[in-house]
Every structure is written in structure tokens, then in C-alpha cells.
């Protein structure tokens, strides 16, 4: 039951003596900018996307494009590696990551973000079609498909940290010429669409927010996305689109329980930070985190290595160094076996 995984980040070596010696943290240089925005005291925290934050387009199997689409942000896929249509499509302010380590990690982080968004509560049940509605910050759930005909308005009510999370049990389908309208200071970076199967954005539409689709995502002709098109297992199809990773402005606190955005050296972070619990995947079974090299041999067994050296009793650390990975129990004439 030993795993073959375990990603090692070589950047982390240089941090250790600086960060942990004597408990001081001066001299540290931030590796990456903070992800997400701190929530106002009563609303949902943003959905953290980890390294998927920089991706405008992310797929599992393939990325297929038609026409001069303009992607601003990273474009990637994993485990597939086929990207077609670039050129005539272009990727600016970003890099194409085809089945590389960055894409692998981005998919992993997308998974975490997807599970986070899917698990948020409390939810407000919405009708299958959002057209004509004005919604404030919150979590909106459709048990099966979610659709949009016409315009849905997302109103942040002057709180730029307002987060809007949509949970679609199956598909997300927007009609041609539909619009996701942001008002009251709402930001596309704070709008998330968790899609249980696949998302299809109709032609000539204006869409805002990050699509987190479990299967595939199709953006039809001429549609503009201020946000991200992230598909976990399937493909992303584009057609004469503009996809732009949203910038996010962290709003200054307005209530007494909210946090400030700058922190002084050596002081503890204060104020409101994401208050929603995160539970990810729960593995089955129990971890196999030991190989017995310090365990005493029991019940008079003899352990014989391939090198013919017998180890008895006490910790292997006191024995001659082993060159084999597995010990074998051998039946010796007249000896006891397990």
C-alpha cells in the first residue's frame, strides 16, 4: 500500500533555516501572492483555486479552438496533451502548459476548489433558468441543470468582496446572447459556477465568473468570458472567444469585524479571514507510513536478507546497512517460522 506519489517542491529547501530558526520570520520573501480575498464578516469566502488561479483555460483531455480566440492567462490541460487551434488563437499574459507538472498541480487545485464550491452552505434553491433575476451574494443551487436565457444580474450591494457561488447538479447551459451582468461593485473574480457535468455557453454571450466543470466546457461562437473556463476531466472547446482571467481588487474593510489588507512585520494576522470550513476528499483505509526498520523482530523469528545476514531482535539501525528493500522470512531446518 505504499504510494508512488509525493510531489517534492524544490523551492522549499531554502526557506527552512530562515523561517524556523529562532522562530523569527524576518527576511522571508513571499513565494506567491495570496489567493483569494478575505471575506466580509457575514458572507461567503471566495473559492480558493490554488495554482489554477492563473489559468484562463484548463482541461483534462483536450483543448480545441476555432478562430482567432484571445486567451489572457495560462492555458493548460492534464492528463491530455493535445492543444489545437493556437494559432490562430493566442495566449497572452500566460503560458501553455500541456500535461506538464504545472498543469497536473492546477488540476489538483481545481479539484480542491471544485469540492469546496460544491460543499458550500447555506444554499438558496434557484429555478432552472436564472434569466431576469437579480441576485445578491450567496450560494445558489439547482439540483439538476442550471440555465440562463437573457440576463442575470449579480449585485454586490457596494461590497466588492461579495462572493456568488452557483451549484449546478448537472449541466450549465446559457442561451445565445445571454448576459451575466455584474453591478454594485461585483467582481468576476468572486463569481463561481460549480457544474456537476458539462457547461455550454451559447453564442454571442457575455459571461462572468469561473466555471468549475467536472466534465467539459464549450464556449460557443463569439462569446466573451471575464473569468475562467476550467474543466476537470473532459475537454474545453473554444470558438472565436475572448477569455480573460479576472483581476481582483481587495476592498478595504468597512465593518468593525473585517480585516485590513496590510500586515506589519512579525505581527499576527488579525481580523476576519475565510470562515467557511473546508473538507476535501476523505481517503479510505489507513496510511502505510512505516516499513518496520525500527521494529524489534518478534517471537523468535529469524529474518534473513538476500545478502544472507540474519537480524535478530533490536533495531536495524544497529545492524550492518542493508542493501535490499524487503526482508524475507525463511524456513530454517529446525527453526521456528512465523
Amino acid at each position: 500500500m505504499t504510494g508512488a506519489g509525493g510531489k517534492h517542491d524544490h523551492r522549499s529547501h531554502r526557506w527552512i533555516s530562515v523561517a524556523l530558526a529562532g522562530g523569527t520570520v524576518s527576511g522571508l520573501v513571499a513565494l506567491a501572492s495570496l489567493v483569494g480575498t478575505p471575506a466580509a464578516s457575514a458572507s461567503q469566502a471566495t473559492v480558493g483555486l490554488g495554482s489554477a488561479t492563473s489559468f484562463a483555460v484548463l482541461a483534462g483531455t483536450t483543448v480545441t479552438n476555432t478562430g482567432p480566440s484571445v486567451v489572457s492567462g495560462d492555458l493548460g490541460l492534464s492528463p491530455g496533451s493535445a492543444v489545437t487551434g493556437f494559432p490562430p488563437g493566442t495566449v497572452g499574459n500566460g503560458t501553455i502548459h500541456a500535461a506538464d507538472a504545472v498543469a497536473v498541480q492546477a488540476q489538483s487545485d481545481l479539484t480542491t476548489g471544485y469540492l469546496d464550491a460544491a460543499g458550500r452552505t447555506p444554499v438558496t434553491t434557484v429555478s432552472a433558468d436564472l434569466g431576469g433575476q437579480t441576485l445578491v451574494a450567496g450560494v445558489y443551487k439547482a439540483t439538476s441543470g442550471l440555465g440562463l436565457t437573457g440576463t442575470v444580474t449579480l449585485d454586490a450591494k457596494s461590497d466588492a468582496n461579495s462572493v456568488f457561488i452557483f451549484q449546478a447538479g448537472s449541466t450549465l447551459i446559457t442561451a445565445s446572447n445571454s448576459t451575466v451582468q455584474l453591478t454594485g461593485g461585483a467582481q468576476a473574480c468572486n463569481v463561481f459556477w460549480q457544474v456537476g457535468s458539462s457547461a455550454t455557453l451559447g453564442t454571442g454571450s457575455s459571461f462572468s465568473g469561473s466555471i468549475l466543470a467536472l466534465t467539459s466546457a464549450t464556449v460557443q461562437t463569439g462569446t466573451t468570458v471575464s473569468g475562467r473556463v476550467l474543466a476537470r476531466n473532459g475537454q474545453v472547446s473554444l470558438d472565436n472567444n475572448t477569455i480573460t482571467v479576472p483581476t481582483c481588487t481587495r476592498a478595504a474593510a468597512t465593518s468593525s469585524t473585517s480585516s485590513t489588507t496590510t500586515v506589519a512585520a512579525g505581527t499576527a494576522q488579525s481580523g476576519a479571514t475565510p470562515t467557511t470550513a473546508v473538507t476535501g476528499v476523505i481517503p479510505r483505509g489507513a496510511p502505510a507510513t512505516g516499513a518496520g526498520g525500527t521494529a524489534p523482530a518478534g517471537h523468535g523469528e529469524l529474518l534473513v536478507t538476500l545478502g544472507g545476514l540474519a537480524l535478530l531482535g533490536a533495531a536495524a539501525a544497529t545492524a550492518v546497512a542493508l542493501t535490499v528493500r524487503r526482508r524475507q522470512v525463511v524456513h530454517l531446518p529446525g527453526g521456528r517460522d512465523a
Binding site: 505504499t2 504510494g3 508512488a4 481517503p283 507510513t289
Partner: peptide
């Protein structure tokens, strides 16, 4: 103990991956 951390996912059987480096 002052060590770097790797990251772990799931094995295909749903159990948790364990580190490949005994010291990390």
C-alpha cells in the same frame, strides 16, 4: 524537526498516498 513538505494525493484504490522520501 525542520523539513520541507511534499504534497500527497490519493492512490488509485482510494487510500492516501504516502511520501516517497522517508525524511520528508
Amino acid at each position: 524537526v525542520a523539513v520541507p513538505l511534499s504534497s500527497l494525493g490519493l492512490n488509485s484504490d482510494g487510500t492516501v498516498e504516502v511520501p516517497t522520501d522517508y525524511q520528508e
